[in-house]
Amino acid sequence: MKLFVFSDSPDIMKQMLTYLREKGEITAATTSGDADIGKFGASVLYRLKGNHMPDSVARTVAGLVRKENYDAMFFGSTVLGREVAGFVSEDMGLTSVTEIVDLRFEGNRAVTKRFFLGGKTVLEEESQAKVFTVMPGITDPQEAGSASKEQEVQEEASALSLVEVQPKKAGTVDIEKAQIIVAVGRGLGKKEGLQQIEPFAQKINGVVAGSRPVCLDYQWLTEDRQVGLSGKKVKPKLYIALGISGRSST
């Protein structure tokens, strides 16, 4: 099988390449400058050069996938990845299955699993979809033995202009990468309860995260710390939930 893989996130890219390289020959494309992406088993790796405006990345990727007859195309589920996947699906007139956490091919049909109804169910489907968005964490990344043939591709002209890039503020945490998370829910009772949680989290090298009500409704914590389906997808070694019912919601 000939597969195409795109992600702007080096982490999801490495996970997807590890997961997919057994299933076929991979051509990959990325806007990331991460030097190691070429070690994960793609035969060809296109490096997109430009401002990474959504419209130009979408058209550039659509152009790349039209060059070959791919059996399936995979996009890491990020803000940009979903935009490009939607654009490419429509451009090629293809069915898409999104946010997959599991995949196998049966002949020319794909059997996929994804979370549905706000995460309350897992939907297993069989389809002729050829475009997939892939949830972060589909597998642990492992380098392959060989290096990708790398090629730079200039992004097509954009109708948009880049005014400014504002990197994440100092002090913002990346809970997606955290190994230990102490997550709090509304069972904490009041914001002051965090004063007891923070020293504990610090002591065990963990970061504090919160449920949707805590981050969004009560704003005890900033939204970059929100876990769950409408927040960040996390995969720590240890997750301590305090005052969270565990009933799935958004």
Partner: peptide
Amino acid sequence: GNQSADSYTGMLPGRLSRILGIPLVGN
């Protein structure tokens, strides 16, 4: 909206952008 709370596909903005030929700025 960027992604809806029930199905979470996030495909609509990109698809609409392609059909309508109008650039998309997401999230």
